[in-house]
Design a binder for these strands. Structure first.
Length: 264
DNA sequence: GGAGATGTTTCAAG
DNA sequence: GCTTGAAACATCTC
């Protein structure tokens, strides 16, 4: 599920627990979400620490705790973060639970494609580094052009999904961006005109900022005019033309587009 | 029962 | 060494 704005929404859920102590940590240590992770260290260090700060970059989240403790979370395909009452009993898919006096912070992930990481140290973890965020000044025309050039033989849909170039963009956002920029998803990146590249960057920034504003705030629905509402529907139509959408697999992912808006 | 799902990593080939 | 594409990962839903 979660892309840029959904991740932002979930991150903020845990902010209810800011400044409060972690009384205890409960986790399903053998689950895949902890792969390669130091669950014992995580439990020992977080217990008794205070939750001080949270941030997100693309789909990655970082939660900071007193004493130089950092928790990294990725939601994968089906992860969510939420807050439950203090006496909450975790269920089957609630793989990590941080207990505070007044609440429990819960990470759930049925499909286990998400990931939990832990780092103990003064500075931010070594794995916390990322490409320029879409909303930043560094995500400029030169940066985008250079990234596209490096992937000139790949279909543009696949390139939009690369997190080290377009952090936070996932399957629905990529389709939304391509539809707005009127670019066919299978188009080889190197074959794009400069007008199309400009349109893509513009659409990327627009979809990101609007999604953050609407979905990121309270999980509201984007306007009816967005492609997202038609993408998976049987008989989904282009919001512009009311013509049926085309479906196919591009870059290994199901893709929906309008052949009238986005001709080859 | 089978296919597919809003993601990333790994591996092999070019 | 870099890019690309397919498979693998685990579970649920239609």
């Amino acid at each position: 599920m979660p892309e840029l704005a959904e991740v932002e929404f979930y991150r903020k859920q845990w902010d209810a627990g800011l400044r409060a102590k972690i009384l205890s940590v409960e986790l399903h240590a053998r689950k895949r979400v902890f792969r390669g992770g130091k669950t014992r260290e995580l439990r020992q260090h977080l217990t008794g620490s205070r939750f001080t700060e949270s941030s997100a970059r693309g789909k990655q989240m970082l939660f900071r705790f007193s004493g130089g403790n950092w928790l990294g979370l990725h939601l994968g395909m089906s992860g969510t973060l939420r807050v439950e009452p203090a006496e909450f009993r975790p269920e089957k898919h609630d793989h990590l639970l941080l207990r505070q006096v007044r609440r429990a912070l819960v990470f759930r992930d049925p499909r286990l494609f998400g990931r939990v990481r832990f780092h103990h140290g003064k500075a931010t973890p070594p794995w916390w580094s990322m490409a320029p965020e879409i909303s930043s000044a560094d995500f400029n025309a030169n940066y985008v052009a250079e990234f596209l050039r490096r992937h000139s033989r790949a279909p543009i849909k696949a390139v939009l999904l690369l997190q080290h170039g377009f952090p936070g963009v996932g399957n629905w956002m990529a389709d939304e961006i391509l539809w707005r920029a009127k670019v066919a998803p299978a188009k080889r990146t190197g074959a794009l005109t400069s007008t199309q590249v400009r349109a893509l960057r513009r659409a990327t920034r627009f979809v990101s900022s609007e999604a953050m504003r609407i979905i990121g705030r309270d999980f509201s629905d984007p306007p009816r005019s967005w492609l997202i509402h038609e993408r998976w529907k049987a008989g989904g139509i282009c919001p512009r033309h009311k013509t049926p959408l085309t479906r196919g697999t591009i870059g290994g992912r199901t893709t929906a587009w309008c052949t009238k808006c986005q001709p080859e």
